[in-house]
Structures are given as structure tokens and as C-alpha cells.
């Protein structure tokens, strides 16, 4: 599964880690993240993410 990077702040979404702060379990691919999921560091939306 690809890791995705936030182009606004550089935060790296790693599917192996998930996003505990939004209750997203490890193993969740980027595509499977909810549409309204946002970057936990800078709050921008999925559109601002790019595959690493």
C-alpha cells in the first residue's frame, strides 16, 4: 500500500500506522480513508495528499 504525503505540511500517512488521532486503524489504505479525513497536523483535506 502506498504511503501518501501531505503537500501542505509534509506529514506522511503510512497505512501501516493508520491515524490514531482519528481512530483510523493500522492497515487502512489511503483510498479507504473517509472523504472528510484531514491531515492530523495541518487540517487540509485528502486532495492535498500525493503518493510518496
Amino acid at each position: 500500500m502506498d504511503r501518501y504525503v501531505c503537500v501542505s505540511c509534509g506529514y506522511l500517512y503510512d497505512p501501516a500506522e493508520g491515524d490514531p488521532s482519528a481512530s483510523v486503524p493500522p492497515g487502512t489504505s489511503f483510498d479507504d480513508l473517509p472523504d472528510d479525513w484531514h491531515c492530523p497536523m495541518c487540517y487540509v483535506g485528502k486532495a492535498e495528499f500525493d503518493p510518496q
Binding site: 504525503v5 503537500v7 505540511c9 509534509g10 492535498e48 500525493d50
Partner: peptide
């Protein structure tokens, strides 16, 4: 930050 510079 190269990510935010190049890609952002």
C-alpha cells in the same frame, strides 16, 4: 521542507 516546496 522539500515535500511542501516541490509538491506543494
Amino acid at each position: 521542507n522539500e515535500t511542501t516546496l516541490f509538491r506543494g
